[in-house]
Amino acid sequence: MNMTLRRRPRGTGEALKDFPTFGLVSAAVFAFLYIPLLFVVAYSFNSNRVVTVWKGFSLEWYADVLTNNDIQRALMNSLKVASVATALSVILALGLAIGLLRMARSGSTFAWALIGAPLIIPEIVFAIGTLAFFVQIQMPLGIGAITLAHTAFCIPFALLPIRARLRSVDLSVYEAAADLGANEWRIFRRITLPLLAPGIVAGALLAFIISLDDFIVSYFLAGPGGTTLPVYIFGMIRNAITPGVNALSSLLLLASILIVFISYVITRRKR
């Protein structure tokens, strides 16, 4: 970091590239990104009921959270939704990744608009749109409905690592396989799938946390009995904020960060 302001910089190329105060601002932004999360975790160990008034270190809230039946039920709901939505979105994304490469320009523009729509449209609109649609077709609300909706917005997250991987494959590898006697199906099973495996795993992990962490869509589609973990946490925040919220949030944070880290390692190592 070069924070001295010189009018005519001389010396190494590295110093020439630096702009004064940019390093400082960057450090501040990193602090801004992480300190709030650290506070959530820190206060989860507070023995006081009033979350922000520190009394002493305690793990009681974790014990509390982990033994709570409602929370266990919500967790199970979340895991069911996330697993099925992940599996569905990965399969659809795999097909899309392969199909997109073979589509004409007009076709792929349309496809990209559909894939990107759930990301760019404000989530509330997507949530109430899906709600209205399900009510209209008389689809019962609950974890089934949540799973279907999650699959839609998990597709782009599953798609991107798979697509990145697919595009890095030398096309003549498929030709070589065909040349050596493999038909379309054998090429897919023996060449395409194994080559895409790291991308598929990374995409699945991303889809999983996106589903696991979603609140708004789940909130509107939950109906009775469809409470997922984030929906439950929202209820807790609304009722009474205790370090229990922090304990549960910390666990969810840990899970997300762990999963995204694994996904990162997989994509980095195999590329």
């Binding site: 003549s172 030709e175 396989a177 194994p194």
Partner: peptide
């Protein structure tokens, strides 16, 4: 093949 097209996996 020109690029050899060996299966990397």
């Amino acid at each position: 093949f020109q690029s050899y097209a060996l299966f990397p996996h």
